[in-house]
Design a binder for these strands. Structure first.
Length: 742
DNA sequence: TTAGGGTTAG
């Protein structure tokens, strides 16, 4: 936006110095009388737009609407108060023939606080074109708007207006100017404004410190902090929050100690900041101390603090204490619900998260975008497509105009992970402004569904639109190559990422490459890559190499790799299972027995296989040889029928696998009782013929179940979409989309 | 002769 430029001036303000007209009409009665007028008093008591309209009517009835003062108060209330209504304020504003400066300032202020601050700038243009001179109150609202929408260009023009009017020495204008530059990433200019002025109170210092903190310049921030003549509580808070934000929790907590030593009384924000540092660093002891401090202070029942406590306890893993505090709340706001739901998802208790969400819907608190982001990630994890769809509809209805497009990205992720890649593509294609995250979500979605061609096309489209890929984009691309078994292409992307895009490979990228090379049997290249890594390979990388050894029957290499894994992750039974299977493949039964014994002696328990399926919005979970599902009798009856039909169709179970391998659901006996087959049987009896069955398994699907499921899809004429630990399998007409490569 | 700046769940 270009603001009006005066033809007579090299600076930008045209009408400022020329015509200022006078403000209050002569009809305005004495102020004292106005201030004590009952309608104006009532205004401050309004709690809704309806109340407001009644007071407005009374103001008109008593003739007060002819005074600028009453109109000012009315507009101020409508525009600023949480009970007001900005649209109503604008309506009123437009009806005033010659708004005075106070009225202009307050309508601008209202928009600066709104979700649409650009209107504040547009109103400012009108204000100066109308010949009303802005004052030191006008500018902080404008700079706040510029900061909120990143309007540096406009901010600079308005800065010129400030200079022209000689207002740069107003403390409020000064600080909001620093803040505008700092928030818009122009730290140099923020510093210039700060250095040029003699106005150096804690507030202006803090504005600049926050700017440095947001860019990670902690040393500069700290130097400034040490220079503040009189540090107030907000400056302490900002510095503590700064350390916490960049993960330097010890320094954050040390500063908090220091603050108490110099007798600065912590306030609500201090405690929120400290609790969030405790939450992130897992310092539940300090958290407990903070809790007793809070309970012994006037802040005892402060909702924000209890919310922060709930958040702290759940992030530290003490969900019980968190839930106790949550249940003890007499009044819960949306944040209370969000932290508790987020606590469950953070600790992987997705079912509890969804149960709580349902409870929230029944209470009188409206979910917001944060709630939905949390719930969508739980849906994605559980494969709860029905609830995910419901949330999609809810977003369409209530959040259509929201600028936060992470909700759409989250929907893409949810649909992809719930097995509905078409719906994911639809959401993606309907997005007006696609963020990098949304491109990434779509690319990885296509990758896990085994559509490397589509993922690659999307990547090219993205480049054509001038969007620069990041490291996550390449994880998606490389995993597309892994799932499709395309080592050559993977190699090309890996090299392109480093040389064309200047992105240094992280653990994830190496993981994809080593998986890809290993499974293609290119062990020499995989080993070379591992040796040349800048960081130590993690358990996941060694595991994928071990998996490749199993596929290719590389016993000796497998033994070496397994040793590395035993050392790195002594409590992970996966490595033992894989090594045992490698021995089994080579018919080395003594070694198989030795490894089994070692496993048993160490008292390790394999993660039990578990498959979930959602029917009519309810998520049902089945474990291997399930004995708890209420409909298990019918399920096992169906299972017998399935086995009979499989036999008729000529299916011979590969029992050798059960005898030889301790497969992913080891020790659990009969193949037909694997959790995915139980879930499929349940799906067959509880959905209409022809309905797609979607299941989610926590482990990788075993070879025997994979073959059986292919045939089941044909016999029962059902599409079966299965998500396992690594990827998706779309079973249809006797075939699987993974082309038996997984 | 009505008002304004810096910290604050993910």
């Amino acid at each position: 936006m270009v603001l009006p430029v005066s033809p007579s001036s090299s600076l930008s303000l045209p009408i400022l110095s020329s015509s200022t007209h006078h403000i209050l009409p002569a009809s305005d009665p004495p102020y004292k009388l106005l201030q004590s007028h009952p309608s104006l008093y009532l205004l401050s008591k309004c709690k809704s737009l309806q109340d407001l309209k009644q007071v407005h009517a009374q103001i008109i009835k008593t003739g007060l609407h002819n005074t600028h003062f009453a109109l000012s108060k009315l507009i101020e209330f409508c525009a600023i108060s949480p009970y007001g209504d900005l649209a109503y304020a604008l309506l009123l504003f437009e009806s005033i023939e010659e708004p005075n400066r106070f009225i202009w300032n307050n309508i601008i202020r209202g928009y600066s606080l709104s979700s649409n601050p650009i209107v504040a700038l547009e109103l400012y243009v009108r204000m100066i074109l109308c010949g009303t001179e802005p004052n030191s109150y006008t500018f902080p609202f404008l700079f706040k708007s510029c900061a909120k929408i990143g309007a540096t260009h406009e901010g600079k023009q308005i800065h010129a207006h400030v200079v022209k009017l000689g207002l740069e020495n107003d403390a409020f204008v000064h600080t909001s100017l620093i803040n505008m530059y700092a928030q818009n990433g122009e730290l140099g200019n923020a510093r210039l404004v700060f250095d040029k002025s003699t106005l150096r109170d804690a507030v202006s210092f803090t504005a600049l410190i926050t700017g440095y903190v947001s860019r990670g310049f902690m040393d500069d921030a700290r130097r400034l902090f040490d220079e503040i003549p009189v540090r107030d509580v907000v400056s302490w808070n900002a510095m503590i929050a700064g350390y916490a934000q960049c993960g330097r929790f010890e320094e954050a907590l040390a500063l908090f100690e220091e603050m108490r030593k110099v007798n600065v009384q912590p306030n609500e924000s201090t405690m929120v900041t400290v609790l969030s540092a405790c939450a992130q660093s897992g310092s539940v002891e300090l958290g407990n101390w903070v809790r007793s401090w809070i309970e012994n202070s006037v802040l005892g029942s402060n909702l924000r603090l209890v919310n922060a406590l709930i958040d702290m306890y759940s992030k530290c893993g003490d969900l019980e204490t968190a839930r106790g505090l949550f249940d003890g709340l007499h009044q819960r706001d949306v944040i209370s619900w969000n932290v508790m739901i987020g606590g469950y998802t953070h600790r992987s208790c997705y079912k509890e998260a969804l149960t709580l969400f349902h409870l929230m819907l029944r209470s009188n608190v409206e979910p917001n975008d944060v709630t939905l982001l949390g719930v969508l990630s739980a849906c994605a994890y559980l494969g709860a497509l029905d609830l995910g769809k419901w949330i999609h509809a809810y977003i369409d209805k209530n959040f259509q105009h929201m600028t936060n497009n992470s909700l759409w990205t989250s929907l893409i992720d949810m649909y992809a992970k719930c097995g509905n890649i078409d719906a994911a593509e639809q959401v993606f294609n309907n997005m007006n402004l696609k963020s990098l995250a949304s491109w990434n979500a779509m690319i990885s979605g296509l990758a896990m569904h085994g559509h490397p061609d589509k993922a690659i096309r999307l990547f090219e489209e993205m480049a054509n639109e001038g969007i620069k890929p990041d490291d996550i984009t390449f994880v998606g691309l490389l995993s597309a190559c892994t799932h499709a078994g395309l080592p050559e292409l993977g190699r090309q992307y890996f090299s392109s990422m480093i040389h064309d895009f200047n992105i240094s490979p992280k653990l994830h990228h190496y993981g994809c490459m080593i998986d890809l090379l290993g499974r293609a049997g290119m062990f020499d290249e995989a080993e070379t890559l591992m040796k040349n890594m800048e960081m130590k390979p993690d358990g996941a990388i060694w595991s994928s190499l071990l998996g490749a050894c199993r596929v290719h029957g590389r016993v000796e290499l497998g033994e070496y790799v397994a040793e590395q894994l035993f050392e790195l992750e002594p409590d992970n039974p996966g490595a033992y299972v894989l090594l045992s299977n490698i021995y089994a493949g080579a018919c080395r039964w003594d070694d198989v027995a030795r490894i089994r014994n070692r496993l048993t002696n160490m008292g390790m328990k394999k993660v039990p296989g578990c498959t979930s399926i959602e029917v009519d919005g309810v998520v049902h979970e089945f474990v291997v040889s399930d004995k708890v599902h209420p409909l298990r009798k019918d399920v096992y009856k169906m299972l017998d029928e399935i086995d009979r039909l499989l036999e008729v169709a000529g299916f011979v179970p590969d029992t050798s696998e059960v005898l030889r391998d301790i497969d992913e659901e080891w020790k659990e006996g009969a193949l037909s009782h694997h959790s995915e087959k139980l879930a499929i049987a349940f799906g067959l009896i509880s959905t209409k013929p022809g309905t797609t069955i979607r299941i989610v398994k926590n482990l990788r699907v075993c070879g025997n179940c994979h073959s059986a499921t292919k045939l089941i899809s044909k016999i029962f004429n059902r599409e079966i979409i299965a998500r396992d630990k690594n990827r998706f399998h779309h079973f249809k007409d006797g075939f699987c989309s993974c082309k038996d490569y997984w």
